[in-house]
Nucleic acid binder design. Structure first.
Lengths: 254, 254
DNA sequence: CGAGGGTCTTGACGCAGGTCAATGGAGGGG
DNA sequence: CCCCTCCATTGACCTGCGTCAAGACCCTCG
């Protein structure tokens, strides 16, 4: 990190986090996360809000439905699935969260978490106590604006999933899913054409409203058609364009 | 309809009323809308933000995808459907908005509306310019909190729809839909057991990820089973409990 | 290095809901 | 008041995906 920071930060009376090696200021996710489009001043202040970082091992829950809502979390590394469990024992994956993305927005409305969030691999998050965050965003127009943007995008993103679940056929769903992952990997500086899935076929299926066998079959078909190569969790996208065509192919015979 | 409309007609688009006879302060929707849980002071100030009320006739669009985002709208009377149109010509209903509910949150993220909002009947909304709203919510903690709650609930509500679309069978979807309407009518002081649908079978189907014929068939079956009475748009709920059982019946044989 | 459990693939078959088509109502406009 | 258009209902048939089942692969742990 940046060499001599020793004399800085004395003002942070509340810097609970022992490990200060990662700060919003020099975090390489700042363009994807809350700091996006904040002024340097604001980023500094935001950094002060991060109460602690927390490590989770694969399979561990970051939050559980029913728990009181205290903090938002920004994914620092790794990835998560968000699940909703209905009374009748159904359990559905409603999303996957990657680095830079914000978790916990579900708790704001009722002060209680509604969804479960589980690490798909060993992961790390930054915790942001919400009460203090709200205070700060009253004083920083930029932070307020950015937070509103993030919530709005969450709403829009979910509407996209609703369209997927409501009107796409299995192949379109899977193609859309792969392209979505691809785009997000690219945004994080990883290869958009070669990556490892962090989730199982069952989790993908749950998210896409399909059974795991269908997900597997569709992927095999894409493989045969030489749109992708897939071996277990390893994905290589060979023909993004045809994949896009499939993803947005009106069923039209017209 | 409204008596002599000859001179009004000319500027249909500008049927914005300066009429301020309805104020948040005495609006009977205040418990369902933004003023919920605000102090009288805050409500007064919020009222000052409402730039105008706007009347829409059945079928008229409140906003269209692609238009610049300027204002949030609170539904004052009537109801709306929110639709998303995909490039490939698909068009899906993503929600229905009733009085007291907030429209326009989709535009915040990109300053451009993503969804179409169309009146299902003659309706009226209060327009709230967003820039001024953001300013005000920086100065009023209560308003800020309430706004965050509303966005969070929107997110949670959409997750519920995702579960519906992702894992429910047709009968469960329709039962869930009817109970949802019932609850919202009750919250507004109307009968929870007898009401008129404002949307067509096709719109319901689009929202529920079903075809209109399926919606019709399921409703007819519910009628035969004496769970409801339904004649065209008129609904009478006879057995809410059994409807609930259907809505949350795990497919489980286990 | 081998055993075992979780994950993935693939096949055969069935059914919920889609598709197509015909008919009947309801309501608004002239 | 009547017509016309939109909406809803119902039946018959079809198909995409779910279900069930059998193996194969992979990774971990002893």
């Amino acid at each position: 990190m940046q060499g001599n920071t020793a004399m800085l930060r004395t003002t942070e009376i509340f810097s609970i986090s022992k490990d200060v090696s990662v700060r919003c200021t020099n975090c390489n996710l700042r363009e994807l996360c809350l700091p996006e489009s904040l002024s340097p001043d604001e980023v500094l202040r935001l950094n002060g809000l991060v109460s602690a970082r927390r490590r989770l091992k694969k399979g561990e829950a970051l939050q559980r439905a029913g728990e009181p809502f205290k903090s938002l979390y920004a994914v620092r590394s790794g990835s998560f699935k968000t699940c909703i469990a209905t009374e009748d024992g159904r359990d559905q994956v409603t999303g996957f969260k990657m680095s830079g993305e914000i978790i916990g927005l579900d708790g704001i409305g009722t002060n209680t978490h509604i969804i479960d969030v589980v690490a798909l691999e060993d992961s790390e998050v930054c915790a942001i106590p919400f009460t203090r965050f709200e205070e700060a965003s009253r004083e920083m127009a930029g932070l307020q604006k950015q937070f509103h943007r993030i919530m709005s995008r969450e709403i829009v993103g979910e509407q996209g999933v609703m369209v997927l679940l409501g009107s796409m056929r299995a192949e379109e769903r899977v193609a859309t899913f792969l392209l979505n992952l691809s785009r997000r990997f690219r945004a994080r500086g990883y290869s958009p054409t070669e990556f490892n899935l962090r989730m199982t076929r069952e989790e993908i299926g749950s998210y896409l409203g399909l059974k795991l066998e269908t997900v597997s079959r569709v992927m095999s078909r894409f493989h045969e058609l030489e749109l992708i190569q897939i071996k277990q969790k390893h994905v290589l996208i060979l023909d993004p364009q045809r994949l896009k065509d499939i993803a947005s192919s009106a069923t039209s015979s017209v």
